[in-house]
Amino acid sequence: MAKDIKTTAERMAMLPADIPRDAVIVTRNLKREYVMGSEVVRALQGVDITIRRNELVAIMGPSGSGKSTLMNMIGCLDTPSEGEYWLNGHRVSELDDDALARIRNKEIGFVFQTFNLLPRATALANVELPMVYAGASGKERRQKAEHALEQVGLGNRMDHRPNELSGGQRQRVAIARALVNNPSIILADEPTGNLDSATSVEIMALFETLHDQGQTIILVTHEPDIAAHAKRQIVLRDGKVESDGSTLVEVSA
């Protein structure tokens, strides 16, 4: 982090000229290949997408479409075999593991299908965790975590452990955790996959509220209902972008 002294604007200025200056995510000919036994699996076969600040985007596609691989790539959990990826001006495609960890910490808020909270830690401690790795002081951590929990409507559940919370509440804790470091993007992987439909609607409403407040949100889902909350849907098939735009009928929450 110490060597990264440039501001976002300065970093953006160094990007190729044809990239919009408010692009948070830019991929160019992104490819990812896996070797499975003797076979080479081409999970991504050249993906070009650009996502601008304050967009709410759904990435869709059937299983095997490369959706998960793209999500891992966007989430800086994996690096491409070929092609380039800029996240908020950082050229992620050439970073090592520890640099990726720092980028994840600073730029990305993850929301998972299975919530992925630490079971033994309270809601507050779970939300504080990204700030622990960011090196924030105890006081700052507590203040920001409380604020984030209030934002998702869990101000009165801070000292509860995950097993004392409902599914919807757990996902709210996860969203608070994703928000707390003020990331460039929130990356939600099937965020309603383990929730009943009523709770799903609440969670989607929360995402929309955050979007209205200026947050960039990427939803990875295979459910059209959920994708319909987004103004823009990117559909993958066989490792390529099949369609990109507002093709689906919008369903209001």
Partner: peptide, 16 residues
């Protein structure tokens, strides 16, 4: 393993 995965996703480096 799962906990380690969560911590890593949230920005824990190897040394941490």
């Amino acid at each position: 393993t799962k906990e380690i995965g969560i911590r890593k996703a949230l920005g824990a480096t190897k040394i941490v």
